[in-house]
Design a protein around this nucleic acid. Structure first.
Lengths: 230, 230
DNA sequence: ATAATAGTGTCTGTCAGACAATATGAT
DNA sequence: ATCATATTGTCTGACAGACACTATTAT
């Protein structure tokens, strides 16, 4: 606030972007949506989806990230939460920048991505180098899923609206990075009362058909953990 | 300071600020540092301490908030953590704005605030109306202290470097907003092994002198809770 | 019959909360 | 003697984890 009225130097106009860690489940693996940067800086390098905030169009940064998601994946109405904000003069060669990072968790079927070698779902266990500080942002996103996932329905957002208990347990195991005991898991699921039966069964598969469930509410947190306690 | 970026259109230059929820303990009450706004907008209204990011001077928003804290309270090297980012076209009448909000937790003795009717520690139980969306930011800060305080040493940051177990329990009770059983609290404190005796006693007071303790590390989280479990 | 799914039961250990009891030590 | 501080112990209930066991049902 000291430099009132001074002419603007290049550094005095901040770059404001939003970036998003899009997580989903495919083939039993936790995957993240990445795209190759089409422009400098870091042209051709993998990066999190993101973009500039359009101040004339976006009501706030949440609206901006929803626009980005709509444009890049065709998906809207997704579960999105803010992660953190990354800033400074060194993270983007173009100048002083601020990136408000979000995390989106969704079933793979909701993702309609262009058939292109420049956008892809990548296994989080086998990540390429990422542009800017996106590796740190992604790490924070995975930590959030792991931490909050233990006492919330966040991992269930990785699944389609209807799912079996086995699929739900697998989603928690992948999100939390640990195997769970089936009987303990099911006892807790029953106790916490966050599911309702659809009445349908999963047909076509092999032996006994699994009942289908859906979440009563989109996101819910618990006072105890669905994962391993400690 | 309204007319930053003369040659550009008002809407095309975002306002980037940092704001901080400074919490401390006084007279057994949780207090927050507020200041009356000296300029428009919201002139004269209480607000969280904050300021513009100086891109030529601040390495990032954390550095910016540390500068603000140094300028307004004389304190440095404090425990500070990022809360969340608040943005949009409607929160500041001057235009589209982004505020990266932080929380600082410190002992009252570390605060050296100017003797002035325009800056004060205010009891969080009895808050005035606040400028912008600062009421929401403060609410989020208090929620963070309450939530994270249960399984971390965050409430201990409200105290001077050396403190008694009774003072520590009182800090947790204020931070978490609930009474705790002394024997349970002390058993957990012993189990978690995050304190060390200074060897000194609190002298001068009334009856039996209390032993003084200090934290082994500045901030530490636990796998179980020091507060009430659920 | 098979095998994936679903659900029950039991045992053990850990922890939390409540509360009683006692010791300590300056004033 | 008082009284805040400090410490130990006991009891109960809740829950977690491990694992055995039974039931269901399409193929």
């Amino acid at each position: 606030m000291e430099e009132i009225g001074q002419p603007l130097k290049k550094e005095s106009v901040p770059i404001i972007t939003v970036d998003v860690v899009v997580l989903t489940l495919d083939q039993g693996q936790l995957q993240v949506l990445l795209q190759r940067r089409p422009y400098a800086p870091f042209v051709g390098v993998w990066a999190l989806p993101g973009g500039f905030v359009h101040m004339d169009e976006d009501q706030d940064t949440l609206a901006a990230i929803q626009r980005v998601l709509r444009d890049k994946t065709g998906a809207s109405g997704l579960y999105v939460e803010q992660l953190a904000t990354y800033s400074g003069g060194n993270r983007d060669p173009r100048g002083w920048s601020v990136s408000v990072a979000y995390m989106a968790i969704l079933p793979k079927a909701d993702l309609h991505i262009a058939q292109s070698p420049d956008i892809a779902l990548v296994d989080t266990a086998n990540l390429p180098d990422l542009a800017f500080d996106h590796a740190a942002i992604l790490k924070d996103g995975l930590a959030r899923l792991r931490g909050k996932g233990a006492y919330s329905t966040l991992p269930a957002m990785l699944l389609p609206k209807e799912f079996t208990l086995s699929e739900l347990q697998a989603a928690y195991e992948v999100a939390l990075g640990e195997k769970l005991d089936t009987s303990v898991f099911r006892r807790k699921v029953a106790d916490f009362e966050f599911l309702e039966k659809t009445g349908e069964n999963r047909s076509g598969t092999s032996k006994r058909p699994a009942r289908l469930y859906r979440l009563k509410e989109t996101m819910q947190t618990f006072e105890r953990t669905l994962g391993r306690s400690f």
